[in-house]
Design a protein around this nucleic acid. Structure first.
Length: 152
DNA sequence: GCCAACGTTGGC
DNA sequence: GCCAACGTTGGC
């Protein structure tokens, strides 16, 4: 069992939007960063637990828990010139970008804010709070996961 | 291989 | 809206 944190702008796709999906699942497309791509393609496994983080909003923080429901497969939106993140250099025969499917597990009782997470010395190694971090997908250690949940 | 320019992320 | 931090691009 591995743990992750995935960022999403709630104005684009919020935790409630995920819950509202008719089939309770959504593909996590549009990631165009190689470090994140490698995690999507190689490391994330079905059943892994994910903190759903809202970024670029009034109260950035962790709002819910999701789960990987399908392991990495090619992000076909890269081939679509009308998609939000087309990449003409990605060849369908040798896809450059990957995505996973996620499904909701539960919403947190409250948002655990970025400000709180930054305040906790226990989370000093969490990539999210490290200076200049811009990764949209990052691993969370098991003890970090448990500690963050204990703040709820 | 270096590095300046540029675009993007995301907190504030 | 501002801007710091970072990744990518492309000239040389």
């Amino acid at each position: 069992m591995q743990y992750w944190l995935m960022k999403s702008e709630p104005s684009e796709f919020s935790y409630d939007d995920l819950v509202a999906r008719p089939d309770q699942t959504e593909h996590w497309d549009g990631v165009r960063n190689y470090q994140a791509r490698n995690m999507l393609r190689d490391q994330m496994k079905r059943g892994d637990q994910v903190f759903f983080y809202h970024s670029n909003c009034a109260e950035p923080g962790i709002v819910g828990i999701a789960e990987i429901s399908r392991e990495g497969y090619p992000d076909h939106t890269a081939f679509d010139p009308d998609s939000k993140h087309p990449d003409p250099a990605s060849d369908p025969a040798n896809p450059r970008w990957f995505m996973v499917d996620v499904k909701p597990v539960r919403k947190l009782k409250r948002t655990i804010t970025l400000a709180e997470l930054k305040d906790r010395p226990e989370l000093g190694d969490l990539a999210l709070v490290r200076r200049g971090n811009r990764l949209s997908i990052m691993p969370v250690a098991a003890d970090q996961w448990a500690f963050i949940l204990s703040l709820e």
